[in-house]
Structures are given as structure tokens and as C-alpha cells.
Design a protein around this nucleic acid. Structure first.
Lengths: 195, 195, 195, 195
DNA sequence: CATGAATGAGCCTTCATTCAT
DNA sequence: AATGAATGAAGGCTCATTCAT
């Protein structure tokens, strides 16, 4: 990557970051391109130098989050832990990350309302890949006798629901730190698959 | 209530029904007043005779769903069942109802993006009342030795998450009926609080 | 047609008229919806109540002109005249009308730059029907020995060119009245096909 | 002219060529500075080193076409031909050239929509000079007994109309070559002034 | 009560133009 | 001489809302 390309990539990243922050506050439809630009001390028009439009900008922010989520899982998978510990760590990381990137996760909720067909295809592809990681862990846990799950996809979706909902009710004003909180939530969540 | 008042109330109800259907399809921002009017074979302007505006209309549809949810719980509470059976029934009903009124439940996800402060206060009040029902059931279950929960609000939120997320992944094309499906999901969900 | 429908039709007509006037002055791209609205003492938004958009509005103005042109020819055809007289009258009418609706005729010049594929198809269909009227007259004139034309479509296009170009150079400040002027131009134009 | 000046002039020329090509395809308003730059494998900004702006660029391309048209006529005038042959040759050349530089000729149609007052003055000046060439030929032809024209400017404009319109209906897919086609059209066009 | 019509504020997007490097 | 980046003005369009009838 040349110097210029790197600079552009960096700028794009900065924009995506700002976008995520503003989107977190106001939601997709409540956020205007001007809002995002203002947050960056830029002008509306400049955004179009880096992204094709609002949809594109938001889509890319979405993709980034999905990729990062995947990385999180992969990182845990390479640690030397029991299956159960692995799943717990994955859940904790997911919750932690979802609270950090609250914005992006909120957009995940109704993508069909926002994105184009092609974009949705890509999003669903990544989601499924992510879900597959959980399925594999659960299946391994069942094999190893740690878990007791007959319908893995159902259980996995219940699991993901319990996790994703956290963005709806976690309040940073609470007594617990984000990580302690995530730990606590995980304890209850893991029960969904436990023997 | 006079005849006229009753007629008006009935009409309001019809409008709310249509609104929920259209909102289910297109989401809050994707739904225009005209969409709702068309679905009722009325004209845009008429809606303003019954509701102050779009926000008001949607808010009231929201309230209705929350009330109905509460009624569902109350009905179960009056049945003669063990605590565990009661909780299971409540969960099943919730899932069933949330799939029926998918629209309303999707709006529940980010109300702050849509409603005014006063409206939000009311919504949160009803939500808390609803949550309290679950807390009571869980507490009773703990007392009775069925459940094992230390942090009831946390467990309850995990529970609600698992339940509410269902609207995100349930597909009516699947092999199971809505009720059978709800039963299956409940089996995994209930584990969150089980001993 | 009900009263209301007639009112709407009338309003549409008024809008088309204003549009043609403004378009005559500023051209398609130079004309904004606001320009047209201002000319009608309306607001931008109102136009969208009657037309789907700018393109639609202009397209319909175009269609109207083509239809009217056709009517003009048909009217002449029903008069009791020799072929040559008929052609002359048709040309005069065309010139007269094109100077009256200068705007619409200017848009005719590069429709592909403006309209959609479907719209172009319709425009070309009407144009061809119009051209066919000329071809028929010319053919009849050749038959009757008045005209001497081997390649009718070529001669017809040369004829139409001579006629259509008039909007480019006629100046109402000149000494001649529009009709006298049209008569004069016709005398030279008709030579294209004369024996 | 210094070397540098010559280089600049050459570059300007290249830009004008590309501009004409792109303009031919997309029209004035449909062509962006970026389109032109892309066609030259340059960047938008560079164009502003050579031209004051879009209008200027297009204006100069226009001027070039008018000059070239004039040159075409002068070349014919120096050939040793009868008046009628000369006029025919001039018409053929005009048609030929107008089909080659379709873009430029389309812009000629509504210059007032595009150019500034000063630019228009210059354009009209050149146009008149060009028209005068035709007038002279026609007058000479009348004198010599070849032509029969009372109102020379009128006939000339009819003539120019017949010629200029060709860009509207000539299709390169036709059976005839451009030159054969021009010859055929000329045969009908010349009749406008013939005795 | 209902409706056709009108409104105006706001948003996304485009693009000619500028400028530091 | 060239370019990447930024800008800002302008335009098309949508839609919640209002109102006379």
C-alpha cells in the first residue's frame, strides 16, 4: 500500500469511527450526512470523496464490525482452554465488544430496512460465518460432554439473543465495570447450553 | 362512553391495527402516513383527526402492545400451575405474541430514536412493570427451590434478550409451527434460571 | 370525468404551460422545479402532487406537443385542397406552432440526453407517426406529378430540418408577422420536393 | 511561440479534442469536468491549469469548430468550380463535418443556455461571418442565373436548417457512407435555392 | 368527518471550483 | 504542471403536517 493509499484508508477509518458514534446516538435515519461531517469538522460534500453515499458508508461500518467480531472469536479459539472456557470467553468478548460498538450492533438489528440486496447478502454471509463458530463450539462441547444441546442452531440463536440484547439494557452508570458485567451476564447465558 | 366515542375508539383501533401491519413490513422510518392511510383505504389527512401525528400514532400502538403483553402475563398468573410451568407459559406466550406483532416489537428496540421524552417515560414505566412480573416469578421460583438465581434483574434481562431476539431469526418458512417453535425456544431459554 | 378529475387535469395543464414557458427560456437543465413553481406562484413540493418528478413533467409537456402537432396535420388533411396545397399548409402550421411552442420544440432536439428509455420509445413512436404523415403526402404528390422525390425519407428529413431550424433564427422583432414569415419560409421549403 | 507555449497549446488542443468527444456522448450538462479528465487520463484539477473553467473549455471548443467550418468554406471557394458546384461542395463539407463533430454542433443549437453574454457575442459574430459566405454564394448564383432567390437571408437560413438538422437523424448504421449520404442530402438541399 | 391540495423544512447527492503541496 | 483533497452552493425529492371546503 502506498503512502497515499494508507492515508486514505486512515481517513476512511476515522470517518467510519465518527459515523459509528453518531449513528449510535441517532440511529440510521436520524443521522444525516451533515451530522457525521460535523463530528469530523468536515463538510458534507467531503464524505462523498471517500464513500459513495450514506448507505455505503454505513454498510462499510457494519462490515468492519462483523469482521472484528470474527477476529475476536478466532483469537479465543487459539487460546489453550477447555471448550466451556472458550465459549465463555467468546461470549464475554462479544458482550464487551457490543457495548463498545453499541452503534454498530444496533444497526445490525434491522438491516433489511437499510441496505440493498447485495449488501444484505454480504452481511448475512458474514453473520452466518460468525454463527457457525458458535455452532462448532457448541457441537464440540456436546461431544466432550460439557454441553447438552439437541437443536444447536436454536440454542445458538437463543444464546446470541441473550448476548445481543445487552446493548438494550446495560447502563454504564451501574456499579459493575463493563468486563465484570460481561462476566456476570455470561454466567447466566452459558446455562443455555450447559448440561 | 357515548356512541360516538365508542365509534371513534373503534376507528382508532382499526387504525392502530393497520399501522402495526404496515410498520411490521417497513419499519418506522420506512412507513409513511400515506402507507398507513392506503392500507385503510383512507386519505392521509383523515389520520390527523384521530391522532396528533405520526409519532403519536406509533406511540399508541406501542402502548397497546405493552398492555397486551401485560395482560398475557396476568392471564397465565391466574392459571393453576407450578412456578416453573408459569414461567414457561409466560415465555411461550411472549414469543408467540412477539412473532405475531413483529412490528411492535421491533419498534421496542430503539424507542429513544423515535419517541419524545414523555412518551419514553411512559414506555419505560410499562416495561418495568412487565419486567417486574418476571422478577416476581423468578424470585418465587428461587424461593420454591426450582430456580437458582442470585442476580435476578440480570438473569431476567438475559431471559428477555433470548426471547426478544426471536423476532430477528424466526422464519415462518421453517418446518415448525409458531407454537411448536416457541415451545422449543422456551426449553432452552428457561435454562437461564433453572437450578 | 368527474369534476375533481377535470380540475386536476386543468391544473396539470396549467403547470405544463408554465413549464413550457420557463423551459423555453432556460432549457431543461437550466430550469429548476422551483423556477416552474415560482412561475405558478406555487411551491416546489406542490408540483410533486401532480407529477412524479421533473423528468415526468417535461416528458408530458413533450407528449402534448407531439399530439398537438399530429392534430394539426390531421386537420389539414381533411381540408379540400390539392396535395401541394396540403403540404404547404402543413408546413406553415408546423412552423407557426413551433414558434408558438418554441420551448417544447427545443427540447425535442436532444431527447436522449433527458428522457428514460421508455419515454424515448414513446417519443420516437409519435415522431415516426408524424413523419409518416409527411411521407404519405410526398408520395401522393409524386404520384400526382407535383413532386419529384426519389428518396422520400431523406427528402422528408431535409424538409423537417428546414422547418424545425426556424426556432433557431426567427426573431419576433422582424418586420413580418409570424404567419407571413411562415408563408415565406414555406415557399423556399417546399422547393425541396417540388418538380 | 516558445517551446513551452507550443507545448501548452498542444495540450490545450488535446483537451479540446477529448472534450468534444465526451460532449458528443453526454451533452453539455451531462458531461462533468471529471468525465473529460478521465478521458485524458488526467485529474479534474489539471484542467483548470489550461482553462478557466468548464464554460471556457466548452466555449473554446465551440470557437474551434466555427473557425474550422469557416476554413472549410474558404477552401472550397478557392477551388475552380461553378457557383452551383461550389455551393454544393460547401454543403457537403458542412454536413460531413457536422457529423464528425456532432457534439460541437449540438452545442450550437442552444448556446444561450450555456454561454455568457460576451461569449455569445463572439459566437454570433462568427456565425454571421459564416452565414455571409453562403449569402455571397447565393447572391452570385442568382446573378449568374443559376439560382432563384428573392430573400437571400431567409433562403440561407432554410438551407442551414436543412443541413444542420442532419445531426438529428443521420444514423451511422445506415447503408450509405457518410460522404455518399451527404451527397444525397445535398441534392435535395440545393433545391431550396435552385431556379 | 373526510379529503384534496398545498406547504416547507430537511436530506441526499452532484459538481464546478479552489488550493496546498 | 499536476494532483489529491476539500468545499459549498444548488437541485431534486420526500413527507409530516395543515387547512379550506
Amino acid at each position: 500500500m502506498s503512502l497515499m493509499e494508507r492515508k486514505t484508508a486512515e481517513k476512511k477509518n476515522k470517518i467510519l469511527n465518527s459515523a459509528l458514534i453518531v449513528l449510535a446516538e441517532k440511529g440510521y435515519h436520524g443521522t444525516t450526512m451533515e451530522d457525521i461531517a460535523n463530528h469530523l469538522l468536515m463538510t458534507k460534500g467531503s464524505l462523498y470523496y471517500y464513500f459513495k453515499g450514506k448507505q455505503d458508508l454505513v454498510f462499510q461500518s457494519q462490515i468492519r464490525i462483523l469482521h472484528q467480531s470474527m477476529e475476536n472469536v478466532k483469537a479465543v479459539n487459539q487460546e489453550d482452554l477447555t471448550i466451556e472456557e472458550k465459549l465463555k470467553r467468546v461470549i464475554i468478548k462479544h458482550i464487551d465488544y457490543s457495548l463498545t460498538e453499541k452503534a454498530g450492533f444496533l444497526l445490525m438489528i434491522n438491516p433489511a430496512e437499510i441496505f440493498s440486496k447485495e449488501q444484505l447478502t454480504e452481511i448475512y454471509r458474514l453473520r452466518e460465518a460468525y454463527a457457525a463458530c458458535y455452532d462448532k463450539l457448541i457441537a464440540a462441547g456436546v461431544e466432550a460432554g460439557f454441553f447438552d444441546v439437541e437443536h444447536i442452531p436454536v440454542a445458538r440463536n437463543v444464546l446470541l439473543g441473550a448476548m445481543n440484547w445487552v446493548t438494550q439494557w446495560y447502563s454504564p452508570e451501574g456499579a459493575l465495570s463493563k468486563t465484570a458485567f460481561a462476566q456476570l451476564v455470561t454466567d447466566y447465558t452459558i446455562r443455555i447450553v450447559k448440561k
